[in-house]
């Protein structure tokens, strides 16, 4: 790790001030992605603004309409939350398959969304449920939040405060792990809500998380695995690497989408 200045503000306003003050500051939430990148010297922020001292940014509130999760809420808290398990079991399941237990004890939902790793799980849930990301400045729809690999709509001095997931009728998440990193080689989040069906894919897209509109249309009419059986996702635009060709990833999207629909609760 390169040397940096460390700050641990007590509230969001102070954190924003620190972000404004330094031009190469980075927010540190759970650190499960940022710190490994810094250790390998792939990231070299001049200032680290550690959010762990800010109270009120974590916690889960569920109503019949939405599950609202504070940005600093850890994966372990989401997976174990009785409210999430009841209202949005697919989200609890998704949280339970992120990383490993020690990573889930530190990693946060806000950190995952802000980082927008193309193989991360939470972006699939946010996009697959049509979540709203609330920052210190505004509310951003998931459809407008993810802007490509590791890119989001967040401004330089913008901090995620919470994420609101509308409670769907049904939702499911299927993840097929990369055998080495155990990130999603492909992950598919499906949901059926009042505005129709959503299908969001992580791990596969060259530009990060994306929706499969053709499947959504079919599932909107008939939310069943059979309804999307014939739909093939084109291999163009899919990640191809040592762990899977573009064709393989495209194929897996179909398999996992059907399984996610079948398992949706």
């Amino acid at each position: 790790m390169y040397a940096f200045t460390y700050e641990r503000p007590k509230n969001v306003d102070d954190a924003v001030k620190l972000l404004k003050k330094a031009d190469d500051a980075k927010l540190l939430a759970g650190g499960q992605t940022l710190l490994p990148a810094m250790k390998l010297r792939l990231a070299s922020p001049g200032t680290i603004v550690d959010l762990s001292g800010i109270k009120g940014l974590s916690g889960i509130k569920a109503s019949s309409k939405a599950v609202v999760i504070g940005a600093l809420t850890k994966h372990v808290e989401v997976m174990n939350s009785a409210e999430v398990q009841k209202s949005l079991p697919a989200l609890a399941h998704l949280a339970s398959v992120i990383g490993d237990p020690a990573v889930r004890n530190r990693g946060t939902i806000g950190g995952s969304l802000a980082n927008n790793d193309p193989s991360a799980d939470y972006p699939a849930a946010a996009l697959g449920l049509g979540a709203t990301i609330k920052t210190n400045k505004r509310e951003i729809e998931a459809d407008k939040f993810f802007k490509g690999l590791f890119e989001t709509a967040l401004g330089a001095d913008e901090i995620i405060e919470s994420v609101s997931f509308p409670v769907p009728e049904k939702a499911g998440y299927e993840k097929f792990r990369n055998p080495a990193s155990r990130f999603a080689l492909v992950g598919v989040f499906v949901s059926k809500g009042k505005d129709g069906a959503r299908v969001a894919v992580t791990g596969a897209g060259e530009s990060g998380v994306f929706r499969v509109k053709e499947m959504e249309a079919a599932l909107g009419k008939d939310f069943s695995a059979k309804a999307i059986e014939g739909i093939k996702v084109p291999a163009k635009g899919m990640i191809a690497d040592l762990h899977g060709t573009a064709e393989y990833r495209a194929h897996l999207i179909g398999v996992l989408a059907r399984r996610a629909v079948a398992a949706a609760k």
Binding site: F176, P179, L185, H243, G244, T245, Y248, H251
Partner: peptide, 8 residues
């Protein structure tokens, strides 16, 4: 024989 290989 990774999943990708075996699938193929």
């Amino acid at each position: 024989a990774t999943p990708s290989t075996v699938w193929k």
